[in-house]
C-alpha cells in the first residue's frame, strides 16, 4: 500500500513539474514583449521539432539523415504553392504537403534501404541538393526568387498574423504534440523495432523485424513531421526560397539532437533550447564587431560538447548527481523495482 502511494506521489510530482514548465512557456509572451526574443522562441520551437523528426531516424533508428532541410523545404513549397495557386485553406495545405513529402521520401528511399551502411546518409545529401537544384530551375516552383504567401488581415483560418504571439503558441503546441507523438512511438512496437534495427540488423531480422519495412516507416514519419515544420515556417516567414534547403540547414536540424542527446526523445528540445538562443545571441552581439566570429564561437561550443559530453547533455544528466538530487529531493522517485512492482500489479 505504501509502495502504491509512493508511486502515485511520484507520478503526481512529475505531472506538477511538467505543468509548471508548461505554464512558464505559456506565460512568457505575457511578460516578454520584445518581438526579437519571441522570434528566438519561435525559432527554438520549430527547429526543435525538426530536430525531433531527425532524431526518429538518427537517434532511434541509427540512420543519419543529412537532408532534413529538403523535407522541410518540400513541405513548405507544397503547402505554399497549394495556397497560392488553388487558394485552399492553409491548414488543409499542411496536410496535403505532409502527404506529398511522405510519398516522395518513401519512393526515393526505398531502394537505398536495401543496401546497408552509410548509403542512406549519402543519398539524403544528394536528395536535398537535387531537390534544391530542381526547384531553382523550375518555373512552376518560382525558380530562385521563391514563393510569397499573401499578406492580409489577422486570421486563424488563414493562419496569418502581424504579431508573433499566435505563432509562438502554435509553435509551442506543435512542439509538444510532436514530442508526445515521438514518446508514444518510442514505447510502441515500432519504437522497439527501430531501436533493435539501430543496435543490430541481423538481430532484428532474427526476432521477426523486417528492417526495410520499419526503416521506410521511420523515414516517412520523419519526413512528414519535417514537412509540417516547413508549413509552419512558411506561414511564419510568409516567404520561401530554395535557400531554405541548403546543406547547412540540414546540419542545423541535426545539432539540437546531438547536443541535447540523440538517445532521448527529449534531447532535441533540450539541445534546441540551449543552442538556438546561443547562436542568435552570438549573432546579435558579435557579428557586427567581427563578421563570422559568431559562427566560430558556435563551432567551439559544439566541439566542446561533442568532445566532453558525446552522449549529449541529457546523456550526461542521466548519470549525474544532479539527476540523483532531482529524483530524490524534488520528484521523490521510488526505486525502479518498486515502480515496476506497482505497475505490474496494477493491471491484473
Amino acid at each position: 500500500m505504501d509502495k502504491k502511494k509512493a508511486v502515485r506521489d511520484y507520478h503526481r510530482n512529475l505531472a506538477v513539474t511538467a505543468g509548471i514548465i508548461l505554464l512558464i512557456f505559456i506565460a512568457i509572451p505575457i511578460f516578454v514583449k520584445s518581438p526579437y526574443i519571441l522570434n528566438v522562441f519561435v525559432l527554438v520551437f520549430y527547429m526543435s521539432t525538426l530536430s525531433m523528426a531527425w532524431n526518429l531516424l538518427g537517434g532511434m533508428t541509427g540512420q543519419n539523415s543529412l537532408g532534413h532541410a529538403a523535407y522541410m523545404g518540400l513541405g513548405a513549397y507544397a503547402s505554399c504553392l497549394l495556397v497560392v495557386r488553388t487558394g485552399i485553406n492553409p491548414w488543409l495545405s499542411a496536410v496535403a504537403g505532409m502527404v506529398a513529402v511522405a510519398v516522395v521520401a518513401g519512393v526515393i528511399f526505398y531502394p537505398c534501404f536495401i543496401l546497408r551502411g552509410p548509403y542512406f546518409t549519402l543519398v539524403s545529401i544528394a536528395f536535398g541538393e537535387a531537390i534544391r537544384q530542381f526547384i531553382i530551375n523550375s518555373e512552376f516552383f518560382g525558380r530562385a526568387s521563391g514563393v510569397g504567401l499573401p499578406y492580409g488581415k489577422d486570421s486563424w483560418i488563414d493562419f496569418r498574423f502581424g504579431s508573433k504571439v499566435p505563432y509562438y503558441y502554435v509553435g509551442l503546441a506543435m512542439m509538444i504534440l510532436i514530442y508526445a507523438f515521438m514518446k508514444k512511438i518510442e514505447r510502441s512496437k515500432i519504437g522497439y523495432a527501430l531501436k533493435t534495427i539501430r543496435e543490430d540488423e541481423d538481430a532484428a531480422a532474427a526476432i521477426g523485424i523486417n528492417p526495410i519495412k520499419y526503416k521506410i516507416m521511420a523515414v516517412v514519419i520523419s519526413a512528414m513531421v519535417a514537412a509540417l515544420v516547413g508549413f509552419f515556417y512558411a506561414s511564419y516567414i510568409r516567404y520561401i526560397d530554395p535557400e531554405l534547403m541548403i546543406q547547412a540547414k540540414s546540419t542545423e536540424a541535426v545539432l539540437p539532437a546531438i547536443v541535447g542527446g540523440a538517445a532521448f526523445v527529449e534531447g532535441p528540445i533540450i539541445g534546441g533550447l540551449i543552442m538556438i538562443p546561443l547562436s542568435e545571441f552570438l549573432r546579435a552581439t558579435y557579428s557586427a564587431i567581427l563578421p563570422g566570429i559568431n559562427m566560430l564561437m558556435y563551432a567551439v561550443v559544439l566541439l566542446v560538447v561533442i568532445r566532453f559530453r558525446p552522449a549529449g547533455i541529457l546523456g550526461w544528466y542521466m548519470n549525474s548527481r544532479a539527476k540523483q538530487f532531482v529524483d530524490e529531493r524534488i520528484l521523490k522517485k521510488p526505486s525502479v523495482e518498486v515502480i515496476e512492482e506497482v505497475e505490474m500489479a496494477g493491471g491484473r
Binding site: E199, D200, A203, A206, G208, I209, A263
Partner: peptide, 24 residues
C-alpha cells in the same frame, strides 16, 4: 523465406557471436 519471416512460423535462433542490443 526471409530471415524475418521465421518468428512468425514459430522458429527462432541465436547467434554464435552474441548480438545483444547493447545500449538497451
Amino acid at each position: 523465406k526471409k530471415a524475418y519471416d521465421y518468428t512468425n512460423m514459430k522458429v527462432s535462433r541465436t547467434f554464435q557471436i552474441m548480438k545483444p542490443l547493447k545500449n538497451l
